[in-house]
Structure formats: C-alpha cells, structure tokens
Design a protein around this nucleic acid. Structure first.
Lengths: 123, 123
DNA sequence: TCCATAGTTCATGTATAATGGAAATGACTG
DNA sequence: CAGTCATTTCCATTATACATGAACTATGGA
C-alpha cells in the first residue's frame, strides 16, 4: 500500500462513526449488512450513514453490492491488513525482519475470520 | 487503547507531513532528532513543524525532551504498537485467537529496533 | 403506469484543521 | 544583563470536513 492510500484509510478510520461502521461490518462477517440495517443498528440517519460509507468505500475499506432494493455492505478485511502492514513498516523502522512474522500473518488472506465473539466497547 | 485514543492517533497519522515526521523519528531511533534538524530534513517551516509535532504528541506518538537550546523528539513506538493492536481487534473481529501471534509480537516491548535500513519512499 | 421502499446525491451552514507571519519563551554566551 | 539561537505560541486567513434537509435514482409490486 502506498502512502496516499494509507492516508485516506487512516483518515477514514479516524472518525467515531466510521470506525464503528467498520467494526460492525467486520463482526457481521461475509454476509454483510444492508445500509438500512446498519443505520438502524448504529442509530444514524440514512444520508449521514451513506456519506460515511462513501468515505470508507473510497478508502477501500468497505465494498457495496446491490441486492434487490437494498444495498449490502461488506468490510474489506484485506485493505485493513494492508494498512496494518503499512503501519508496521513504520513501527519497525529499518528492521523489517522483526516484523516479518506479523506481516506474513497479515498477508495470509482469510486469516482473520470474523465470528462475533467479543465486544470491547462498553460505552 | 480505547477508541478515543485510537481515533486521535489515526487522525494524527492521516496527514502527509505528520506520517513523514513519525517515520523519520522511527528511523532515527532512540537518539531522536532536534526539531530544527527535523524541519531541515523535511523542508518545512519551524512553526508548521511545531504545530504538527504537537498533534503527534497529543496523540502520544512522539515525545519531546529539551536538550540545551534545542528540543529533541522521539517516536513512541509503543503507542504505535498499541494502535496496531487496536486496529487488529477490528481486523480479526470476533476471533482474537487468530491475531494472538501478532498481538504477542506487538506487545513485546523493544521488539522493533529501528536501525535505518530501508527507504520505501522514492518520491 | 403509479406508488412505496431503500439509498444516494446535492446544497448549505457550521465547525474544525492547516498554514504562515509575527511575537514570545527559554537557554546559552560574553 | 544584552544578544543570539532554537523553538513555540498567538493570530488571522483559508481550506476542508461534517451533518442535515430536500431532492433525486433505482428497484419491486399492484
């Protein structure tokens, strides 16, 4: 991932609602979630949600697919993995060998199956 | 790391100059770099640099230490690691076991020694 | 074709962020 | 104590991001 893409992904996630959207989609898993259901669950207006979904989609963090009248959204886990890889380059500075294990883990596609088991957000 | 801290760290890094600042400081390593030298290397005005260093410092990503007339800045690798851990919780959704190896690696302090070997930025 | 449903896009007001000049602070030197 | 150097803070300007109401598009059914 190049710097430009990483910056837009970082900016996309640096937002209370958007990071929550992404989390929900990850937890929901490969089935995805319709925009309406997402708006309902998160308690936001449909146009606000749509705008923020657009930001996430532009950053490659979510994907949309029309299904009848509704539009279903999915988290793009691979893009998150790419972002993690980018940040780890910074974290590990000049000694990439130390990050290789993590990078290998991240680059294995499908390595993270979302199965909705925990909720670290008791707000 | 809680959501609020993660968001401010993400916002801090979602900026061309600031991510470059952070990278330089990581590459420089534990010796750190004086604000003037940093401004010189990055080709930015001292007040612009100072403002952006403040943003990074508020997010806990850099630390400052006065040294004579100059002020030396250091990357807070542990904060970056904490951010990576936070993001990985999202990436791995409900199956944290799959991320445990990465998280263990990240949580090992000093696991990433910056020794300035590569430069993935041929701009 | 007409209507209802599901979402999106547009336009707008407002809040927040970024920039850069100028002045202020803090530290060493003579 | 005056002068200089390194850096920050203050302030005004400009730019960007956000949320929202209203209008629009697309789909499916009577």
């Amino acid at each position: 991932m190049e710097k430009t893409g990483a910056i837009s992904a970082l900016a996309a996630l640096a937002h209370e609602l958007r990071i929550e959207i992404f989390r929900r989609l990850v937890k929901t898993g490969p089935e995805g979630l319709a925009a309406g259901a997402l708006a309902d669950v998160l308690g936001v207006r449909p146009n606000t949600l749509s705008n923020n979904l657009n930001v996430l989609a532009a950053a490659g963090l979510v994907r949309a697919a029309r299904e009848g009248r509704s539009i279903r959204y999915f988290a793009e886990i691979d893009q998150m993995r790419a972002l993690l890889g980018f940040l780890m380059e910074d974290c590990c500075g000049g000694d990439p060998a130390l990050c290789q294990p993590m990078l290998a883990e991240l680059s294995a596609p499908g390595g993270c199956s979302p199965t909705l088991t925990k909720d670290p957000d008791p707000t």
